[in-house]
Design a protein around this nucleic acid. Structure first.
Lengths: 222, 222
DNA sequence: GGAAACCCATAGATATTTTATGGTTTTTCT
DNA sequence: AGAAAAACCATAAAATATCTATGGGTTTCC
């Protein structure tokens, strides 16, 4: 009987324990699951590094939010995913996220390109088991809410460049336009111009930033 | 008991009949299916137009390839989808395609943005029924091979503009570079420049068109 | 071997983007 | 309400990028 080795990372221990019980108890066709768990970025990193030199994990289940040990701006599950892709490229990576916000999903699809993405509210026993099967044999596996975000992005004809996206991102987190010059290597008038340009692409000429933000959100950019 | 009205369009009559038997016989939760079928673009268009003024179809199942009556370059299922979106915007559209080629899927996701996409080799009784349920209640529904193409596209950081994509498309169908000036409003040197540029984006500088085609295919552009 | 197509480089012409400047309107805060 | 801050807008010059014409070299294919 083959053993599928999984590492589950989540700062809520109950969550990883739930995964562990469900998957280790289940009778898969031709294999059994063995699961390790980690609660912090550091723990997870160590586990991944160790596994890299011996037996790489078959699957990594990563929460995106990892509350830091000391509370400050900490490494996320996304960083962990990027690291894992380098150290153990054969491993399948699945994100288990509380939110299905578009900006996050888009970013993760580009930086990590995971084999799976599950929105936590949609996870149950059956979907967990289906995820493992699918990810091992015919990835990818996405839950419904993740699919909705992905569809939104795919159907989008407008392609903004990096600077445009940065502008939208900063708008969304409340950065003032005049302060964006410190984060984006463009002059103030250029940023204003681009905002105008994006508004016209969105069909909301002559409206204010609030309208831009909500339209960008509706279109899945943020 | 509610009736869900579906129009299935496919030039192979056996295919639509298969859909009809499977879905009309199945006991859904709270509704029954009634299915009309059409074999050609013209038939389908008429059915859609008629339904628009009375009772719009709940779901359209569209094949992409519709062999024309007189054999020449004909309207496709994609055109039908675009038309249907205008005439009966509330209807759910699902493409039933023989191929999962990326260019097609990308194009359709942008022009029609269907509620579902099924690759025919993956269709069976169970998935058909699941598709109907999902598309009615929580779209979208994509089969596995469609998902693979979608994932490939999503994970792609590089964004090419319309002309770039046209160049790749024409390359893929064997158009000679010097003949592309007839299909793309650019001069020959510009097209050559763009090819070079795309190659550098793909990391295959100084290689020939064959390499470009296969790289573009690997990255899901064609 | 020769024609056709591909590949490459240069330079002038075009188009687009950025920037500086100066102003008006809206929002925000006291 | 009134002042300050920030958002908006327009113009023109500067900088950049893109396109095109031209003239080659190189590969591919009959």
């Amino acid at each position: 009987m083959n053993i599928i080795r999984i590492l589950a990372v989540d700062d809520h221990e109950m969550t990883t324990l739930g995964y562990k019980f469900i998957l280790e108890d289940h009778e898969f066709d031709g294999f059994k699951v063995h699961m390790d768990t980690a609660k912090t970025f550091a723990e997870a990193e160590q586990a991944i590094r160790q596994s890299a030199s011996r037996l790489p994990y078959h699957i990594l289940l990563l929460d995106i939010q990892l509350s830091g040990a000391n509370g400050d701006r900490d490494k996320t599950g996304e960083d962990l995913g990027i690291l894992a892709r380098q150290l153990i490229p054969e491993s399948r990576i699945v994100f288990m996220s509380s939110f299905s916000d578009n900006y996050r999903i888009n970013s993760i699809m580009q930086t990590v390109n995971p084999e799976g993405y599950m929105v936590k509210s949609e996870i149950d026993q059956k979907s967990l088991q289906a995820m493992v099967e699918t990810v091992l044999h015919t990835p990818p596996y996405y839950t419904q809410k993740a699919l909705v975000a992905i569809r939104k992005k795919m159907s989008n004809k407008i392609n903004l460049d990096d600077n445009d996206r940065k502008i939208l991102y900063h708008l969304s987190i409340g950065t003032k336009t005049k302060d964006m010059v410190n984060h984006i290597s463009l002059s103030l008038p250029s940023i204003e111009n681009r905002k105008r340009h994006i508004k016209s692409l969105f069909g909301i000429e002559k409206q204010n930033d609030q309208a831009l933000i909500s339209e960008a959100r509706a279109r899945g950019f943020i």
